[in-house]
């Protein structure tokens, strides 16, 4: 029950959103887009580990 992962991802999301908003205001639109993509990529890396864990659990559980 690693619940803290949800909060970690939400925190990254909020930080990315705020950062891209700031960058938009200061006129650097392309950096804002890059920050958005970077935030999503970081979260995706954490997510892939969890998905692999789920598939392993199901595989061992059901002898798939």
């Amino acid at each position: 029950m690693d619940v803290d992962l949800i909060f970690k991802i939400a925190a990254i999301g909020i930080v990315t959103a705020v950062l891209s908003r700031i960058l938009y205001q200061s006129g650097k639109d392309e950096f804002a887009v890059i920050t958005g993509i970077a935030g999503t990529a970081i979260v995706l890396m954490m997510l892939v580990g969890m998905i692999a864990k789920l598939f392993d659990t199901v595989k061992t559980m059901f002898q798939l």
Binding site: M1, D2, V3, L5, I6, F7, I9, A10, I12, G13, I14, T16, A17, S20, R21, G36, G39, T40, V43, L44, M46, L47, M50, I51, K53, L54
Partner: peptide, 23 residues
């Protein structure tokens, strides 16, 4: 959390819901 993130960053809101489903 997903609703907070939905209008700013919909992709990360989706990832929050995926992680919750996984857990």
């Amino acid at each position: 959390l997903a609703v907070i993130l939905r209008e700013e960053k919909p992709e990360i809101a989706l990832q929050v819901s995926i992680v919750t489903g996984l857990i």
